[in-house]
Simulated assay, not measured.
Amino acid sequence: MKWFEIALVVLTLGSGLVWLLDKLFLAKRRAARASLLDSEPVIIEYSRAFFPVLAVVLILRSFIAEPYKIPSSSMMPNLLIGDFILVNKFAYGLRLPITNTKFVPVGEPKRGDVVVFKPPHAPDENWIKRVVGLPGDRIGFHGDTLYINGEPMKYEVKGEYVGKGRGAEMTGATLLSEALPGRTHTVLELIGRSNAAGQGDWVVPAGQYFVMGDNRDNSEDSRFWTQTHFLPEQNLRGKAFLIWLNCEGWFCKGSFDPSRIGTGIQ
C-alpha cells in the first residue's frame, strides 16, 4: 500500500524535524523564559514520543523485512490465500522508500526465488511470483511444460491436490514437482486444460526477469502481460522467505491454520 509508505515517511520526517528544532532552538527559548505559562507544546511532546518508534518501523520496513498478505491463489500450493509473509528487503539491494530506487547493490534474484514486485502495468500494486527466467534466458511454455534455453523441465507427479478454505476450488488439480536448474519446487496444473494464451517463447532482456505463478492455470504472470512480458529489476521489492501467519478473515475469523506459522518459502 503506497499510501501507507508515504504516510510513514512523512510522519517520520515531520516528527523528527519538530524534535530536532526543539532540541536545537525551541527548548532553549522556553528555558530562558521559564514560567508556569511556558509548558511544552503538545506537538513537541508527541513528536519526541513517536519519532523513535516511527523511525524504527521505517528502517525495519524499508531495509530489513516487510510483511505482506497473500490475496490470491496464484502461488498455490506453496502460498495460500490468507498467508502472511515476510519479505527480505535487502536481498536485492537497499532501496529508498516510495521511489524504490536502489542505492546500495547487494545481490540479484536467482532462478526459483519467490519475489514481491510492482508489475509494470500496475505500478501501485504489489504482486508475488517465482522467477523462472534470468536476463538472457530463452523461456518457452508449451502444453504443460516449461522450457529454459531449449531444455524442458523435469516433472514428477506427487498426487492430487486437496485445497483448503478459499483455495478449495483447486481440489483435484495435479500436484507436481518441477525441477528448475538448481531448485526444485511444487506446482499445480489442471492437466489437459492448458490456456492457449499462455503458450509461447520469449527471450529475457538484460536487467529484466520472467516470472510465473506456481498455480500455472490460475496466474496472471509474464506469459500474459501484453505491454511487456518481463519484470524490470527496478520494480523488485524483495525476496519472500517466511510465512508467519495464516488467517483468511479479519481477526482470524473463519480460517486459521497454525501449522503454517514459521514455514519457510521454497
Rank of each mutant, 00 (worst) to 15 (best):
Ala91Gln: 10
Phe210Gln: 01
Arg237Lys: 14
Asp257Ala: 01
Ile261Glu: 06
Ile44His: 07
Phe224Pro: 01
Arg183Ala: 09
Ile148Asn: 05
Met170Phe: 10
Glu233Val: 11
Phe241Lys: 00
Lys23Pro: 02
Ser39Ile: 03
Gly165Pro: 02
Glu189Ser: 10
Val9Ser: 14
Arg29Glu: 15
Leu20Phe: 12
Glu156Gln: 13
Arg138Cys: 06
Ser73Lys: 15
Ala55Tyr: 07
Asn100His: 03
Leu96Asp: 13
Glu66Asn: 13
Asp201His: 14
Lys89Ile: 00
Pro205Lys: 04
Ala55His: 12
Gly133Phe: 05
Leu17Val: 15
Met212Pro: 02
Gly107Asn: 10
Gln234Glu: 15
Leu242His: 01
Ile85Gln: 01
Arg260Val: 03
Ala196Val: 13
Gly143Cys: 09
Gly140Lys: 09
Arg111Asp: 10
Pro152Glu: 05
Thr186Leu: 12
Lys129His: 05
Phe141Val: 06
Cys247Gln: 05
Gly82Thr: 08
Gly143Met: 10
Arg130Cys: 07
Pro67Ala: 09
Leu231Cys: 05
Val9His: 14
Asn218Asp: 04
Thr184Phe: 09
Pro123Ser: 12
Leu11Gly: 09
Asp144Gln: 12
Ala34Tyr: 03
Pro181Asn: 09
Asn100Cys: 08
Phe117His: 01
Gln199Trp: 04
Glu169Cys: 01
Trp3His: 10
Gly264Cys: 08
Glu189Arg: 14
Ile261Met: 10
Val204Phe: 04
Gly16Leu: 11
Lys158Ser: 09
Ser222Cys: 08
Leu190His: 09
Arg216Glu: 00
Glu45His: 10
Glu220Ile: 09
Arg223Asn: 04
Gln234Leu: 06
Phe117Glu: 00
Ile85Leu: 04
Pro152Ser: 02
Ala168Gly: 12
Ala240Cys: 06
Arg130Ala: 00
Gly143Asp: 07
His121Val: 04
Val116Asp: 04
Trp225Arg: 02
Ile148Tyr: 06
Gly182Phe: 11
Leu36Phe: 13
Met75Glu: 03
His185Met: 13
Ala91Met: 09
Pro119Asn: 06
Val87Ile: 14
Pro109Val: 02
Glu248Lys: 12
Gly207Tyr: 03
Leu180Ala: 03
Leu36Ala: 15
Val87Leu: 11
Gly165Asp: 00
Pro97Lys: 08
Val10Asp: 05
Asp201Gly: 09
Arg29Asn: 13
Gly249Met: 13
Ala31Asp: 08
Thr226Ala: 15
Ala173Glu: 08
Gly167Val: 06
Ser73Asp: 12
Thr263His: 11
Ser35Thr: 08
Ala32Tyr: 07
Phe84His: 15
Ile243Tyr: 01
Pro120Leu: 09
Glu189Asp: 10
Ile243Cys: 00
Lys69Trp: 07
Lys164Trp: 10
Pro232Asn: 07
Glu248Tyr: 11
Glu66Asp: 14
Ile64Met: 08
Leu11Tyr: 11
Gly143Lys: 10
Ile70Asp: 03
Met75Pro: 01
Val10Tyr: 07
Leu21Gly: 14
Val115Phe: 09
Ser194Arg: 11
Phe210Lys: 01
Lys164Asn: 10
Met76Lys: 01
Leu26Glu: 03
Asp144Thr: 11
Ile98Gly: 07
Val57Phe: 15
Pro152Tyr: 06
Cys247Glu: 01
Asn218Ala: 05
Ala65Pro: 02
Thr186Ile: 07
Gln208Met: 08
